[in-house]
């Protein structure tokens, strides 16, 4: 079991308020991603759950039990750190066995579980190496192995992929997701990368300045962003925003259109925006056009990779009327 509830959790470091007031309910077996720009308090929130920091106020319940004041060792959670935090003086085997040794498990049990974890993570042939003789991805796996053997109530991941190169990151992303399918244990995963959040999560918590902007499934967040911040943060490339008279036409303070929700043509039509092509980023499958729209500024448009554009071409944009997001003056979605 591994349900996690935060009730009115607050955290300040001295005068600085990091988390003003957060309440969350994470269900058993869920894969929840905390995502947000750097400094939004997502890592602090994870450390509060882990017990590595004290809450200033509020309660943290694990499986309904109040753990607010419990030390990390007693919470039954496992954590994978950004730096992996492997014990450099121990072999891979001893690293993975360490939590079991701390739990005073028997020798046979330790061996059995270490072997199992090593097999699951493809580490069997590295068991007698030291962490410094491993590659980044292997170190990552050892860190995960060390977490698995504890059979924790929940796994906490603190930006675990940010030290890996791009290709490996995609691989590990899949492996962690696969692991979650196998283990069905609650996982909380912190990242600043919205692609990781979208691809891995059952539900995403979007954090900004210590506040939960929205908590929902990836598609919910994409389709029904609660506010301008979430709309801008989720989705790649970013949503285009327009203020002023053009927004007023839709009875809103500002409107947003995703790059993929435009119709593009080379001839003028009713209700279209006229612009000049700036940079065209051609990815093969798609092309991202940066268009200087008259009176509205720079916009990003996604088109298929077959059309070609050159710098300075005149283009006409038609936003898909059913997919225009409208926001009030406070940035809330209408």
């Amino acid at each position: 079991m591994g349900s996690i509830s935060l009730k009115n959790v607050k955290k300040s470091f001295g005068e600085v308020q990091i988390i003003p007031d957060i309440s969350l309910d994470i269900k058993d077996g869920e894969f929840v991603v905390f995502v947000g720009p750097s400094g939004c308090g997502k890592s602090t929130l994870l450390r509060l759950i882990a017990g590595l920091e004290d809450t200033t106020a509020g309660t943290i319940l694990l499986d309904g039990e109040d753990m607010t004041k419990a030390p990390p060792a007693r919470r039954g959670l496992a954590m994978v750190f950004q730096s992996y935090a492997l014990y450099p003086h121990m072999t891979v085997r001893d690293n993975i066995a360490f939590p079991l040794k701390m739990a005073k498990a028997s020798k046979e049990e330790i061996d059995k579980k270490v072997e199992y974890a090593a097999r699951t993570l493809n580490l069997s042939s590295y068991l007698d190496r030291r962490p410094r003789a491993l590659s980044g991805g292997q170190r990552q796996r050892v860190a995960i192995g060390r977490a698995i053997v504890r059979e924790p109530k929940a796994f906490l991941f603190d930006e675990p992929l940010s030290n890996l190169d791009a290709a490996l990151r995609v691989n590990m992303r899949l492996e962690i997701t696969e692991l979650h399918q196998q283990l069905k244990t609650t996982m909380i995963y912190v990242t600043h990368d919205q692609v990781e959040a979208m691809t891995m999560a059952d539900r995403i918590v979007v954090l900004n300045a210590g506040n939960v902007e929205q908590f929902g499934s990836p598609l919910d967040l994409y389709k029904k962003p609660a506010n301008r911040f979430v709309a801008g943060f989720i989705g790649s490339p970013k949503m285009n925003f327009v203020d002023g008279p053009e927004a007023a036409k839709h009875n809103a303070h500002s409107i947003g259109v995703r790059p993929e929700h435009f119709k593009l043509s080379k001839t003028a039509e009713a209700g279209t925006w006229k612009g000049k092509v700036g940079v065209a980023e051609q990815l093969g499958s798609d092309t991202f056009l940066h268009v200087h729209v008259d009176g509205l500024g720079l916009m990003t448009i996604r088109t298929d990779g077959d059309q070609t554009f050159s710098h300075g071409d005149d283009v006409y944009l038609t936003p898909d009327q059913t997919r225009i997001y409208r926001f009030d003056a406070a940035g809330k979605a209408i």
Partner: peptide, 29 residues
């Protein structure tokens, strides 16, 4: 010594004594 590693030990269920004897001291040899 990165504090992460000591925190990892705490997460792994090590009390202070074990954290110092099994993690800090061997690393600081």
């Amino acid at each position: 010594i990165p504090v992460d590693i000591l925190e990892a030990a705490r997460m792994d269920g090590a009390e202070l004594w074990n954290e110092i004897v099994h993690v800090l001291v061997p690393m600081a040899v």
